[in-house]
């Protein structure tokens, strides 16, 4: 089974759209797919699936201890099922670490070919951790300065998260804080210097951090393309992620903006299906194929 995570930092760039499009296309390819709405603060994957009033939700998993199998909902697309997000609960966005860990343990045991996690916006720890947990990491960006800035921050924070978890595992967290606090004394100016210092300090840290970093490889998707020339932003952002943030990134493709998309929400049909928003469908298919191809190449 492959776990996919769709993230990207800024809200409204199309993470849920991409998650849904990937799921739809994989299901149409004949795979068994489960979409999980892990946007705890703003779940809306059910609306993309055309389910107006989901009969189950993650609340039943968290509060009533129901197994995930029992809260799986069928969608109108063969092979595509949904675990709806967290609503009608008093604590929608403050799940404990234990609760989240339990959720991921159970997600790994789901019976499916592909499980797609639709992440929330922002760079909270649990969002970052979920992204890092996935085998297929998809990051969505839009061609404007707001989205790109938040997108880089998201990726940068992923790296910090990896650094911190390596430090915590080895009990070097306090040591590292001290180093940073007195950094001028140690000739440290940037995080890069700090990492170099820590690497020299501990071979164990060096190995562990390398292993952590190998877990981060992202596929970049550019959404909301209104003009053809904007497609170059996707190539440029991917290049910058590789060159400035030293995170291996491949460009999966772009999705053209559909000015009529809003009209398809809130109905009883899946938003992305045959006949609706043809361009977008076509783009999402291309992106899915491109990611599958890149993943296959990496394995092979």
């Amino acid at each position: 089974m492959h776990i996919w995570a769709v993230g990207g930092g800024k809200g409204g760039t199309g993470k849920s759209l991409v998650a849904n499009g990937l799921g739809t296309h994989l299901a149409e390819r004949g795979f068994k797919v489960i979409l999980v709405d892990t946007d705890f603060g703003g779940p809306n994957q059910h609306t993309y699936c055309g389910i107006r009033k989901p009969s189950t939700s993650l609340v039943q998993f968290f509060e009533d201890r129901k197994p995930l199998d029992e809260i799986l909902l069928k969608t109108k697309i063969d092979g595509l099922r949904l675990i709806p997000g967290n609503f009608n609960s008093q604590n929608t966005d403050c799940l404990t670490v234990t609760q989240k860990q339990k959720l991921f343990r159970h997600i790994k045991n789901l019976q499916a070919d592909h499980v797609i996690l639709d992440l929330g916006a922002g760079t909270q720890y649990d969002t970052l951790d979920t992204f890092l947990l996935a085998d297929v990491q998809v990051a969505v960006v839009a061609p404007d300065a707001l989205a790109t800035e938040n997108f880089y921050l998201f990726l940068k924070n992923l790296k910090y998260r990896q650094l911190n978890s390596a430090l915590s595992t080895l009990g070097l967290r306090d040591r590292s804080r001290e180093l940073w606090k007195h950094r001028t004394e140690f000739g440290i100016a940037t995080t890069k210097d700090l990492v170099a210092y820590l690497r020299a300090l501990s071979a164990e840290f060096s190995d562990l951090f390398d292993r952590e970093q190998q877990k981060l490889k992202t596929h970049v998707v550019l959404n909301q393309v209104r003009e053809y020339r904007q497609t170059e932003v996707g190539v440029a952002v991917t290049s910058a992620v590789n060159k400035f943030f030293h995170i291996p990134a491949t460009y999966a493709g772009h999705i053209r903006y559909d000015k009529d998309l809003w009209q398809h929400f809130g109905q009883d049909t899946p938003v992305i299906h045959q006949g609706v928003s043809f361009n977008m469908r076509q783009d999402l298919e291309k992106i899915t194929e491109s990611i599958l191809k890149a993943q296959a190449m990496e394995v092979g």
Binding site: A145, T148, E149, Y152, T190, Q230
Partner: peptide, 21 residues
């Protein structure tokens, strides 16, 4: 293409607020 991308500090992909850029 890469030269075009990296020469222009006002390019839409750029994030001048970040040290990386």
């Amino acid at each position: 293409r890469l030269k075009r991308i990296y020469q222009d500090d006002l390019a839409p992909f750029s994030a001048p607020s970040m040290d990386e850029f």
